[in-house]
Amino acid sequence: KLLSSIEQACDICRLKKLKCSKEKPKCAKCLKNNWECRYSPKTKRSPLTRAHLTEVESRLERLE
């Protein structure tokens, strides 16, 4: 599967780190437990900047 097509777990399953069936409108866990089942939009991760990478590398060197 391509990364862009990976389905996201519902908010509660993601928060509780449960295996989500990803069914809509309610996944199996939410249906069974009568929880409100919501699927928040995916958040875009910002790409690493060179400055951040350099900072992490220098912190790693100090720890070694």
Rank of each mutant, 00 (worst) to 15 (best):
K1M: 15
L2N: 14
L3P: 09
L3H: 10
L3D: 15
S4M: 12
S4P: 11
S4V: 10
S5R: 11
I6M: 13
I6A: 10
E7R: 05
E7P: 08
E7L: 11
E7W: 12
A9M: 02
A9Q: 06
C10V: 02
D11F: 00
C13Y: 07
C13T: 02
R14F: 02
L15V: 10
L18V: 01
L18S: 09
K19I: 04
K19Q: 06
C20D: 08
C20N: 01
C20A: 01
K22C: 01
K22R: 10
K22T: 00
K22L: 05
E23L: 09
P25W: 04
P25L: 02
P25C: 00
K26N: 15
K26H: 15
K26M: 14
C27N: 02
C27Y: 04
A28S: 06
A28Y: 12
K29Y: 05
K29P: 06
K29L: 08
C30S: 00
L31S: 12
K32N: 13
K32Q: 13
K32S: 10
K32C: 09
N33E: 09
N34A: 12
W35P: 07
W35V: 14
W35Y: 15
E36D: 13
C37R: 04
C37Q: 09
Y39W: 06
S40Q: 09
S40R: 04
P41N: 05
K42G: 08
K42H: 10
T43Y: 03
K44E: 04
K44T: 12
S46I: 02
P47Y: 06
L48F: 06
L48K: 07
R50P: 00
R50K: 03
R50A: 00
A51L: 10
A51K: 10
H52E: 08
H52C: 04
L53Q: 00
L53C: 10
L53T: 03
T54W: 07
E55A: 12
E55F: 12
E55Y: 13
E55G: 10
V56M: 06
V56L: 10
V56K: 03
E57C: 06
E57N: 01
S58R: 09
S58D: 12
S58F: 14
R59T: 03
R59M: 07
L60C: 12
L60N: 04
L60A: 13
R62T: 13
R62S: 11
L63I: 14
L63M: 13
E64Y: 13
E64T: 13
